[in-house]
Design a protein around this nucleic acid. Structure first.
Length: 346
DNA sequence: CGCAATAA
DNA sequence: TTATTGCGG
């Protein structure tokens, strides 16, 4: 997923650890799909079963989105969630490939359950996650009832989020993936969660929010421009060409960009004769000029208590007491958010 | 993941 | 108050 290889090239010097409160008063454009997938993968019972309501509908994503968003707002962060739209044509092959992989995982899951291999069940359950339309609609409804703004991207969510950050409507993009940097976000915040601890395998490690600035990344990699970062990423592999250029790893790719200056130059020289499943220049054009919309707001509004209760407690069987407590926290956080917004304005 | 009951 | 554990839906 994303530009994993590029992430490996971004060293410690370009990453800044921060407390959640350090982002107080700032708007963060969050990649909604990224968040939902994480909740679906991690909010599970030990046997791999996700949270479900009485009707058997999965609710892990609702729980995660609800409580985390409140935590972010309590820290003074103004969230705006960005949902993916229609992917570009040249991503369809990759999407199909992922779907195949998930179907295979689903088959493995069924087999593991049948044969009672508990640990394998959890493993395949995570690989077999499908984000359904209903889940996405759940998330949008929840945010609407909470008074939290969300944006429907015309194409890639990361592109839309980066655009909002570029225009200064948000301070950063919040995602685990690095793609927003390629789309030009000046800042990326990873690990944007309240919980300071997270399980990695059997070990419990501290994972605090991490701020990555585009300018710092460029400097640390000795690149002249975002274009060169995009070129580098395309050599290593992106969502649109996951394999990158076979035989070219991180170090070699970096050297090639330093030496030749651009992807186009490389295609004319070192990479002449190499064929690509997707035209790399088309991918580059997309990163530089993706479809985005100006139709959005980043304003929070008053939550709709009645609809929230109806949705969470009655429709999805959330505990009434928990919901009431969370609602109080939400309203309190929202009040402070509005006050501090005025404070910073004057 | 994040909450909440419980232990220390 | 902080750390641990198990449940939430």
């Amino acid at each position: 997923m994303g530009v994993t290889e590029l992430g490996k090239l971004i060293g410690k010097e370009a990453r800044r650890e921060a407390k959640l409160e350090a982002l107080a008063g700032r708007c963060v454009a969050l990649d909604a799909y990224n968040a939902l997938y994480q909740f679906l993968a991690s909010i599970r019972q030990p046997d791999g079963t996700p949270l479900m309501d009485r009707a058997g509908r999965i609710t892990s994503h609702i729980s995660g989105l609800f409580y985390r968003t409140i935590n972010l707002m309590e820290a003074g962060i103004k969230p705006v969630y960005v949902f993916d739209g229609k992917p570009p044509e040249f991503k369809l092959a990759e999407i199909e490939e992922r779907r195949r992989a998930k179907e295979k995982a689903t088959e493995e899951l069924v087999r593991a359950i049948k044969e009672g291999r508990r640990d394998e069940v959890a493993k395949y359950a995570k690989r077999a996650i499908f984000l359904t339309n209903e889940m996405v609609e759940d998330a949008k409804r929840l945010l609407t009832y909470m008074g939290v703004p969300w944006v429907q991207a015309p194409s890639e969510g990361e592109a839309q989020a980066a655009y909002m950050a570029r225009r200064g409507h948000c301070w950063a993009v919040g995602s685990q993936d690095y793609d927003s940097l390629l789309f030009g976000s000046p800042r990326l915040v990873r690990n944007l969660a309240a919980s300071p601890k997270r399980k990695v395998g059997d070990e419990v490690v501290e994972l605090s929010p991490e701020i990555i600035e585009l300018d710092t990344v460029l400097k640390s990699l000795r690149l002249r421009s975002r274009e060169q970062l995009i070129d580098l990423a395309i050599l290593l592999g992106t969502d649109y060409n996951p394999d990158g250029v076979p035989g070219i790893g991180p170090q070699r790719a970096l050297k090639l960009i330093w030496e030749f200056g651009s992807l186009e130059k490389l295609l004319d020289t070192v990479l002449r004769g190499v064929t690509f499943p997707i035209d790399p220049v088309e991918i580059k054009r997309f990163f530089l000029n993706p479809p985005v919309t100006d139709t959005y707001t980043t304003d929070v509004t008053k939550p709709d208590d009645a609809k929230l209760r109806e949705f969470l407690v009655h429709e999805h069987d959330f505990g009434e007491e928990r919901v009431e407590r969370a609602l109080e926290r939400l309203k309190k956080a929202m009040g402070k958010l509005r006050t501090s917004a005025l404070d910073s304005f004057f």
